[in-house]
Simulated assay, not measured.
Amino acid sequence: MTDFHQDGRAGIDAALVRRLIAQQFPQWADLPVTPVKIDGWDNRTYRLGKDLTARLPTHSSYVAAVDKEHRWLPILAPHLPVEIPEAVAKGAPGEGYPHPWAIRRWISGETASTGTVADLDEFARAIAGFILALQNVDASDGPLAGAHSFYRGTPPEHYHDETLEALAALKGRIDTDQAREVWDAALAATWDRSPVWFHGDIASGNLLVRDGRLSAVIDFGTSGVGDPACDLVIAYTFFTGSSRSVFRDAVRQDDAMWARARGWALWKALITEDLTVIERVLSE
């Protein structure tokens, strides 16, 4: 039997999904199961017929998202300007697979890219509108940021040691003195307001486009309530030039929020050695 805890992705395939469906949801047992073209790392996703998907965490660290999304997606959806995943059912461990898993409604669309987005400035305004709408949802009972959100929504200092290690590793390849200044500014710009909803991973891979326009935002696995600075990172990872300026104006966040957002963007770019994003962060 495959040890899913050690190599979760290797142990998940269409045959496993078919067995789980047959065992737990026999009403869908005759539907074809096919891998999606663009898959994530945290979960393996399979299309189930035309209208559904099966989504299986690849590791125990991603399991918390199953219950979280199942509870909160229906509450968030009516308040947001574009489609988000619809929770249909929750699966249980079985057939040797050790984690709970999810069945969602299929959302059509293309992954956002410079080739699929018709107007980047308009797209920037749409993303800003989504972020503001999410922040306006009642957060009083929402899941406080922490391990389930991989510490998105918490102060960036959680990743301080990791950031310093990455800076040391990249010394001589980037301006580490300037990068340290950006990081120190992020640490100093504390969040002192009530928690609000954040998505946690506003990235092109989680944005769907139809007819060149934003149509859906997917994967709320790192969502929660806390400091939403992490949701601004797309300013550095996707937008450039005028679209970045449009996004910054439309999302209406203060300088302290942007200092933390730069820190979040820098941390991720440092640990992945994404020199392009590092340069964007440092050049602002």
Rank of each mutant, 00 (worst) to 15 (best):
A261G: 07
L20S: 03
A92R: 15
T163K: 05
R152A: 13
N136K: 15
P74R: 04
K50S: 13
L56H: 09
S283A: 15
R180G: 14
R125Q: 14
D192T: 14
V137N: 09
V246T: 15
R9L: 13
P228C: 04
A126P: 02
Y159P: 00
L52T: 05
K37N: 13
H160K: 12
A166H: 05
P228D: 02
T276C: 08
E95F: 08
G153N: 09
E95Y: 09
D119S: 01
T114D: 15
P74E: 04
D161L: 12
A126Y: 03
S242Q: 12
D3R: 13
G109C: 05
R125S: 10
Q253W: 05
G146H: 07
A77L: 08
P74C: 05
V233D: 05
S223W: 01
D161R: 13
K37P: 07
E165N: 12
E279S: 14
I202C: 01
V225P: 00
V182M: 06
D201K: 02
E122D: 15
A87F: 07
V63L: 10
A54Q: 04
V66W: 08
P26Y: 03
V277M: 05
D42G: 09
D30F: 02
D219W: 10
D231I: 11
W101Q: 00
L56W: 03
F130K: 01
T222R: 14
P98W: 04
I103V: 15
F247G: 04
E165V: 15
